[in-house]
Simulated assay, not measured.
Amino acid sequence: MMIRPILAAAIASCVALPAVAQDGPRLDMPAITVSGEASVSAPPDLAQIDAGVASDAKTAREAAEANNAAMAKVLQALKTAGLADKDVQTSRLSLQPQYAPNRPGQAQVTGYRASNRVTIKLREVGKVASVIDTVVGAGANDVGNVYFTVAEPSKLLDDAREKAVADARRKAEIYAKAAGVTLGKPLSISEDGASAPVFRAKNFGAPMAATPTPVAQGEETLSITVNVTWAIKAGP
């Protein structure tokens, strides 16, 4: 019996195909999966402050001109205090009409409000209180959203990763012992999203009093969760 040429070629091509390697552990491989968690804390080394000026006037031009003049004083005060231009960035500009209250169906414009706000980045967190006092003293009446964070969290997160894997192994060994099996090599490791919570201080919406502004920087806590699958085999 003769095999047709086309069929013979198909058989030959199938035989010549290399075996495809499987990614990850086999579904039928005995294994145990656990999660490991770890957190590390460190004092923040970077701070951010929002500060600006809101100005009210009868006309839009008057409000804008008053706001521009007031904000120029705030920016000059920041420069005098040693803040670099790259660390002061405009974050909001607005000019909005103001309406008379309690007049249903009557949109009566009573004036205009102009506002200008900048975001200030501080690489020395110990200066937060003095910078707040500086901008308020220069005329800022819209200050708030004080943030503290860690500028370069990579090293801290790497330490947390090592501790999280160690925590996963500890848990896996407990389960393996309880089940009467022996823990083998890790088959897969995955990481949940690393979290770096940011501490937010109180908002300062009104001008500060002469008393220095109290600011507590606290600590930053960075957390890691890893999921590890370990091979297991029958115990001795």
Rank of each mutant, 00 (worst) to 15 (best):
M208A: 13
G235F: 12
D142W: 10
A140V: 02
T33A: 02
A10V: 12
G144H: 00
T110M: 10
V109W: 10
L187S: 07
F199E: 05
T119V: 12
A107M: 15
S39K: 08
L93G: 02
I174C: 08
I11F: 05
A9E: 12
V228S: 00
N227I: 15
A51V: 00
A151D: 09
L156W: 04
A60T: 07
A168F: 05
D45A: 07
L95S: 01
D28Y: 09
S130I: 01
T182K: 14
A77D: 05
V228H: 00
S130G: 04
V125H: 01
L156D: 05
N203H: 09
A54R: 15
I132C: 06
A64H: 09
V136C: 14
S190M: 07
D50Q: 14
S154I: 11
G193M: 10
V215F: 01
K79V: 14
A16I: 00
A19D: 07
R26K: 14
N141I: 10
A206K: 09
V88S: 07
I174E: 09
I174P: 03
A63Y: 01
K233A: 15
A140W: 03
A57H: 11
L187E: 07
P153Q: 06
P186N: 07
L78D: 01
D159T: 15
A210V: 08
K127S: 09
A63H: 03
C14N: 04
I132V: 08
A209W: 09
S190Y: 06
S115N: 13
V109R: 10
A64G: 10
L222T: 12
A8F: 04
A179F: 07
D159N: 15
R61A: 08
L157S: 06
Q89H: 13
G184I: 04
E37A: 12
A10E: 11
K202Q: 13
L95C: 01
A51C: 00
F148W: 02
L75D: 03
A160R: 01
A84W: 03
T229E: 02
K127V: 06
G126E: 00
Q96L: 11
V150D: 05
N203L: 10
P207C: 11
R26W: 15
I120C: 00
A9G: 14
P236T: 14
A57Q: 11
L183I: 10
A114K: 02
A209Q: 11
K121I: 14
A54H: 15
A8Y: 03
S94A: 08
S91I: 08
Q217L: 08
S188I: 08
T149D: 14
T229Y: 03
T110Y: 07
R117N: 08
D167A: 07
D28S: 11
G180Y: 02
K171I: 12
T221L: 11
T134N: 03
D192V: 05
V143R: 01
A166F: 06
E65A: 03
V143K: 01
L222K: 11
T90A: 07
W230T: 02
G52C: 02
R113T: 13
G218C: 13
